[in-house]
Design a binder for these strands. Structure first.
Lengths: 204, 204
DNA sequence: CCTACTTTTGACCAAATGGTTAAACTACAT
DNA sequence: ATGTAGTTTAACCATTTGGTCAAAAGTAGG
């Protein structure tokens, strides 16, 4: 029983912490609010995670891993480049749509603890060089236009992430502040971003 | 004399507030730190701006206006679309490079006070519809590929802003955490983003 | 020099906040 | 039953924080 109980409350805490931290950010979040959201006593937070910082870092890690992972799947697949890119963009936008606040949160807190972030990236299995290498090879094969492969990857990430991270502003500017029609717009981007990118780089 | 002195300290406060708020965010910033940075007494902050919120809003407004303005210049110019887009992208990346923390800051605090943001946009003279209209006309003329004009504008903004807003992360991932070589990369993007966009939409 | 004013300051306050501690509770093994 | 280990809680604490206030300092005109 002991272990089950422990895991249970630890999960409750982490989940509550995610909600609160994502809404309020590291500095804006209150330990009391997290405790309330988890339905437990505040001292218990410190029992499981010693300090606010540690709780925050644990939270950040779990969120960060959610948004990052599937870059690598693109590299390992053996489809032709066009299909690789298509499924990558589509999947990625899909993941972001299901967690629309996470990109904002990550951007917000990127500066908080640089060493921790570096550590996190190292241990996350992310290997951007691999992706860059793959693009290089395709360029040598002549399937896509020659350019700095880092530009290509960063462009794709920009097109995927930014419109979601800045949703409140863009929805206000272009969609009458209606989140629903903005999300429909993002849904359509699964197609339009693919077209935009492929039109730019594909050699026919 | 009265007015000059007043403007002076008010400016000092605003400038100090910008530094601190941009570094620490709304919640992380301390009134005392802002006062120190401005070299004045903390009570004076409340004398000029009644509350932290008001000081923050004033700060946000002044920063927001810095990054937003030159969208409209693109519309009003009478160059052909290709040149319009080229100079827009180049100018915009240039502005962002000179204020690399501002995009992060705006993204961070976009959620803080939605009504205030809406007010701000209204009074800022921003008219995204105008830009959208312009793109539509060009598509009808057949100079650029047909697509949702909002997509086009948002794509360009994404490609310009995101790489700067997420500098700390991207520099860590692709540039050995060396800010200098990352900024050189951004400088090169003045050219490569133009190519990327024009390649995608221009009809030759 | 005096007066009316604005600007600036130091001292102060109540509330909030992250964190601690000692006691109570739980479940299991002996 | 009793002891023991981990878990949970209420009460508490030191510090920080945004904000106030009355008095001092500065300023300009009469």
């Amino acid at each position: 029983m002991t272990d089950i109980k422990k895991d249970n409350t630890e999960e409750k805490i982490l989940s509550a912490a995610q909600n609160v931290f994502v809404r309020k950010g590291m500095d804006g979040a209150r330990m009391q609010e997290i405790a309330d959201e988890a339905g437990i006593n505040k001292a218990l937070l410190h029992y499981y995670f010693r300090s606010k910082r540690q709780l925050f870092n644990a939270t950040f890690e779990s969120i960060f891993c959610k948004i990052i992972p599937n870059v690598m799947r693109m590299v390992e697949s053996d489809q032709p480049i066009k299909e690789k890119l298509e499924s990558f963009i589509e999947n990625y936008i899909d993941v972001l749509m299901k967690n629309p606040f996470l990109p904002t949160f990550v951007l917000k807190e990127i500066n908080q603890d640089p060493e921790f972030l570096a550590e996190l990236i190292k241990s996350s299995g992310l290997q951007p060089q691999k992706v860059v290498e793959m693009f290089k090879i395709e360029m040598e094969k002549g399937t896509i236009r020659t350019m700095d492969p880092r530009d290509l990857l960063i462009n794709i990430l920009s097109l995927n992430i930014f419109p979601i991270a800045s949703q409140p502003l863009l929805a206000l500017l272009f969609f009458d502040d209606d989140p629903k029609s903005y999300m429909e717009f993002i849904e359509r981007r699964k197609v339009t971003v693919k077209e935009f990118v492929l039109n730019s780089i594909l050699i026919k």
